[in-house]
Amino acid sequence: MCPAATTSGWEIASAIGTMGATVVALWLGLYQWRKDRSRQRDVRAALSKALQTDLATWRQVVEQCRSDFDQKKLTHEQHFVDWVRGLSKPTMPTHERFARILPDLGRPTSTKVVHAYAECLRVAELVSREAERVRGISRDNVQIAADIRPYLDALSNDLSDAITALDPYVTGRKR
């Protein structure tokens, strides 16, 4: 005959204690994970709103330049000089400070945002280079404006795409 296995009260209490500790550890881990995820979501939302503000501000500048050029509001050479100067130095403090966090927004969104910023900087570099080349000759700014104007349509579209891509993070409707 086989001796009957006997379980002592200490063994049962130890097993119940182990199971309880495991449940508590899992619950604490899940709680911390949710807390971290919520904090990351808050950071992404704040960053997205700030990026959207940068992009929208610069898009307004581009739209105003397009409108002024197309409606022939640039009537004097000094207007062209100011127009060129206005496009030569985009101010985008959020991107400059938080560019390393952009990958946290996910590949599709961060790609559109980085592309829009890169296009802003590229157009500004083109304008600056041309303005530097003709320094002091204000009538050449008329030609610079005519040369740069076609780039503004694509730039405006890129900015709009990036602003739209950030919407789900700003509104909190992302996954």
Rank of each mutant, 00 (worst) to 15 (best):
R44E: 10
Q40R: 13
D140W: 01
S38N: 12
P90M: 11
L28K: 14
W33S: 12
F98L: 10
W27D: 09
E119M: 07
R129H: 11
K89N: 12
Q40K: 01
K49H: 10
G136L: 01
L26R: 07
G86E: 08
H79E: 09
A13E: 01
A56E: 03
H79A: 13
D36I: 10
E125Y: 01
H76Y: 10
F80L: 01
Q78R: 09
S138M: 07
W58D: 10
R122S: 05
H95C: 14
L105Y: 14
C65L: 00
L74F: 10
H79D: 15
T57I: 03
G29Q: 14
V114H: 05
L121T: 12
E119Y: 06
L87I: 10
A50Q: 08
M92F: 12
G9F: 11
W10R: 14
A131Q: 08
T7S: 15
H115N: 07
L126M: 12
P103H: 04
Q60L: 08
A46C: 02
T111F: 03
L121M: 13
F80G: 08
M92A: 15
L47G: 00
Q52V: 01
F98C: 09
E96I: 10
C120E: 04
D70Y: 00
P93K: 09
W27L: 05
D68Y: 02
P103M: 06
K112T: 04
M92D: 11
S128F: 04
R59V: 01
L30H: 15
N141D: 11
R85M: 14
A99W: 13
Q78V: 15
Y117C: 00
Q52P: 03
G106W: 01
T94A: 13
V123A: 01
I12A: 15
T111D: 04
A124R: 05
R122D: 00
L126W: 07
V61L: 02
R39D: 05
D54W: 02
R59M: 04
R44V: 02
T109D: 03
S138L: 13
A46R: 12
A99M: 13
S14R: 12
V114D: 08
T53L: 06
G29W: 13
V43F: 11
T111S: 03
E11R: 11
V114E: 05
F80T: 07
T109R: 05
L102P: 03
Y117H: 07
Y117K: 00
K112W: 04
L28N: 10
D36E: 09
Q32P: 02
P103Y: 10
A50L: 07
V23W: 10
L87K: 05
M19S: 02
